[in-house]
């Protein structure tokens, strides 16, 4: 253990540093919340779009599939930098948090579209057919037949994805969004021992992620339905 770490602890554990880290942690949470909400809405829309039939929507379906397949194969850091530089092309300054939120949403939409697609696919085709026989419209079939059966399949992986996201937002520190990792780097630059700064950051991430993991496990048990047909 390097000398001086123990002596630094009282100087590190100040209200100011605690407030700084907690505020940064709230930005991490906000960033992942934006990603999750946009992801589930836009991703859900893409997944539903890909289930439609008919020629009119064929190009949109193709675009949806292309989007999902491509954006799941680009690292988050590269997407982030691409959004960062592309938003500067217009010549106006965009807040860094907005850049982070756009990049996060782009990626989460692609992943959640895939998760929702798998959920929709888990509902047996007969269900679609019987709904059609009962003269349900496409939206009625979704709302009354498919979604009530699909959501318990969607929820566990979607929740796992949200938790993964909470950790992936750490990369947003690279374009200067002041979230938890960036705060850790700042404190490190102020001369505190890295054991303390990054240790505190690791603990804070853990404090956010672990309760969510436990909650996800509870939810999984709650929504798991006996699958027999």
């Amino acid at each position: 253990m390097p000398h001086g770490v123990i002596e630094q602890i009282p100087r590190f554990l100040t209200w100011y540093n605690a407030a700084f880290l907690l505020r940064a942690a709230s930005f991490t949470l906000a960033l992942s919340a934006v990603g999750s909400v946009v992801g589930i809405l836009a991703g859900g829309a893409i997944a539903v779009l890909r289930r439609t039939r008919g020629w009119a929507l064929a190009p949109l379906r193709g675009l949806g599939t292309l989007y999902v397949e491509l954006f799941r194969r680009i690292p988050f850091l590269v997407t982030l930098l691409l959004v960062f530089y592309a938003t500067q092309l217009g010549g106006y300054d965009m807040p860094l948090f907005a850049i982070g939120a756009i990049a996060v949403s782009l990626i989460s939409t692609a992943y959640l579209a895939e998760i929702v697609r798998a959920g929709l696919a888990s509902v047996h085709p007969n269900q679609w057919h019987s709904a059609a026989v009962a003269n349900f419209s496409f939206m009625q079939t979704l709302r009354l037949v498919v979604i009530p059966q699909a959501w318990s399949v969607v929820l566990p992986p979607a929740f796992g994805f949200f938790i993964m996201f909470l950790k992936d937002t750490a990369l947003a520190s690279q374009v200067g969004v002041v979230e938890l990792t960036y705060a850790g780097k700042t404190l490190n630059n102020r001369g505190f021992a890295p054991v303390l700064t990054f240790g505190a950051v690791l603990l804070l991430y853990f404090a956010m992620s672990y309760p969510l993991t436990l909650l996800g496990r509870r939810l999984e048990v709650l929504v798991a339905r006996p699958r027999h047909r």
Binding site: K167, A170, T181, L202, Y210, T213
Partner: peptide, 14 residues
């Protein structure tokens, strides 16, 4: 339950 990036930061500096 912690980000890989921060884990590497920790190793890298500690």
């Amino acid at each position: 339950n912690t980000p890989q990036l921060v884990q590497i930061y920790f190793l890298f500096f500690v």
